[in-house]
Design a protein around this nucleic acid. Structure first.
Length: 199
DNA sequence: TATTGGATCGCC
DNA sequence: GCGATCCAATAG
């Protein structure tokens, strides 16, 4: 049974959402076709005190979606080349989001290979920039809704999540934020899963 | 208005 | 190890 996650799901505490998203399925609809991957790695960005977060300090044109209500996508361009995908969490006015960092390809694998120009399964979605390329996600989806009707991008539960161990570490690529924020253990991943981004 | 550097990736 | 490549953020 496939069940799209509701707005209420994203109202849970951000760290809980980040952990609970592991084993769920990211679904990208393009016309009648679907590209689907199982989420195996996430990171939490938590509040305006978090120096590693784009929402640190104040509202800007780019980060304003993070200050809005839960259940909307925050998509931004990194290094002028790749997109990164986050789902907004936290109450309105409190900026938080969960970055989707890696997927295990499930449906539409042939098209993912074309979009990525890669044929190795473990190279398709094993990083935040890679999975956006594989699922044709870019800033056109910034600010769109992940719940309710007429979404082109959402997360769903497919039966039971299955048994796996959750690993935890500091977040990747945020050393500029200073030792305290860079060392928060807010990255979560499925242990011993080959599709997790390599460090 | 000008400059700077990034929640990455892939090739050298 | 390093360059790609663009735009948001900040400084002036």
């Amino acid at each position: 049974m496939n069940k799209k996650l509701s707005r209420q799901f994203y109202e849970q505490p951000t760290l809980k959402v980040a952990k609970t998203l592991l084993g769920k399925y990211l679904v990208r609809r393009i016309g009648q076709k679907k590209l689907v991957g199982r989420i195996v790695e996430t990171e939490a960005y938590l509040g305006y005190h978090d120096k590693a977060s784009h929402a640190f300090g104040k509202v800007t044109a780019r980060n304003k979606i993070m200050f809005g209500p839960v259940g909307f996508w925050y998509v931004y361009l990194i290094y002028g080349i790749f997109s990164c995908l986050n789902i907004v969490t936290g109450k309105k006015g409190f900026p938080a989001a969960v970055l989707i960092r890696a997927l295990e390809p499930v449906e539409g694998i042939a098209q993912m290979k074309r979009l990525r120009k890669k044929s190795n399964l473990t190279d398709l979605c094993s990083g935040p920039g890679k999975l956006c390329q594989a699922l044709k996600i870019d800033r056109n989806l910034n600010g769109t809704k992940a719940f309710g009707q007429n979404c082109s991008l959402w997360i769903e539960q497919r039966g039971e999540s299955g048994k796996f161990e959750i690993g935890k570490s500091k977040r990747i690529g945020v050393d500029y934020a200073g030792s305290y924020w860079a060392s928060r253990p807010w990255r979560f991943y499925i242990k011993n899963n080959q599709f997790v981004s390599k460090k």
